[in-house]
Design a protein around this nucleic acid. Sequence first.
DNA 1: CAATACGATTTCCTATAGGATTTCATATAG
DNA 2: CTATATGAAATCCTATAGGAAATCGTATTG
Lengths: 237, 237
Amino acid sequence: MRSPKPHATTHLPEPGEPAPAVHRAASLAEEVYDAIFARLMALKIPPGARITVDNLVRELAVSQTPIREALGRLEGEGLVVKTHLVGYSAAPQITRRRFEELYELRLLLEPEMAGRAAARMTDAALAELTAAAGVMSRSGGIDERARYSQFARQDAVFHDQILGVAGNEMVRETLAHQHTHFHIFRLMFHARVTEEALDEHEAILAAFAARDADAARRAMRLHIERSRDRLLPAFEQ
Amino acid sequence: MRSPKPHATTHLPEPGEPAPAVHRAASLAEEVYDAIFARLMALKIPPGARITVDNLVRELAVSQTPIREALGRLEGEGLVVKTHLVGYSAAPQITRRRFEELYELRLLLEPEMAGRAAARMTDAALAELTAAAGVMSRSGGIDERARYSQFARQDAVFHDQILGVAGNEMVRETLAHQHTHFHIFRLMFHARVTEEALDEHEAILAAFAARDADAARRAMRLHIERSRDRLLPAFEQ
DNA sequence: CAATACGATTTCCTATAGGATTTCATATAG
DNA sequence: CTATATGAAATCCTATAGGAAATCGTATTG
């Protein structure tokens, strides 16, 4: 005689984040997806590591069905790979070749998008962008790793907001998608937060403030090229 | 487009046909994925239509588990959307806005890629490209719809092969992914196969034959712009 | 006619049992 | 000692049966 739990009151354990009082109408599969996604982004599941369904059943206190569904979705997004009769595992670390391809893609898209953003920039959007850039405080104090993790997140928000102003949602989604893969790489080889990156962001903001599309394009191109050169040594070791 | 995996040589049992006793190299979930993907691409499941798990259970003669897994993967790729306690449905038809964004994206990427392809072109690759373009025969005879369906497929192969020569796999995957969505749109409003498109392909080939990167860029840009203008009237009705 | 109540349908999720395959340790033959 | 074969454990994968929640249509009542 089994006594299944009522669905409406089941919540997945989200460490650090309190569950909302009102239950959002999200399926269990969706919550499982978020839980696994968070574990991947936090490197709690490192690249290439096995992901067994049984472990997740125990860890998340859900049956196999929503877990399989969530893993299928993660597979469709390329964050997880499946081998028949072996199981799921986190996607492998990005290769140098793929790293360079990503920066080629960014250089083809982001400078142009920055130019359009400058042409369409509003005062409200500029204020938001400045705020996002401002959060990346130069002040030390926190430990290096936590600080870089915060910088990586804020840098992503900054670039994403620019793409939002530029107005092409498809480009925005494409780069956001690639960024989720890239994020893991950045955290693995967490480079120091350089003052240069912050200077480059300010140069982009200055071009936006002047509504200078051409300067925005140049500043963005320079920023991405330098970002690439800063991270490239990670492959040399 | 699905990730490259060793492909199964076996198929799902046709209705009435018993399942083979020998073990299949590919998981059932993978075969189910292919089956649903094919139904979406062939418009057998039109955009927005409901996709119930039970129907697929009956139609494909497998249990719910692999079907849920496959639907999850399709959801991750954006070809299918899920609503809690309502179920799955095929992704809605592309909007005009999204159509224009796609062509912006293509114009930012494909001309540049065509230029690189021209610089890296080999005789073997050129022969393959010419063959792919040649399959799109100008001869009539077949009925209009089947002919356009064939053209759409071959056009996709042509562009994809160019991206392969250009050498950036990430760009190639990105555009292939977007193309699966776009393909459905093209079939819904199957425009006539114009002789123009074939002429444009030949112009691109000529630039490749001359290893002229600049001409390839121009020809590709013109081809995409004209393709956009040919399809745009579909939104006017 | 309008509003509510109720049942049927659909869908999500769970549970359990068992078959198939890989991996790894152990034993045996050369 | 090395290489191959055998067997056990772990894991994945499938099938089936059914409970809980939401939606929809219909019928009843004011």
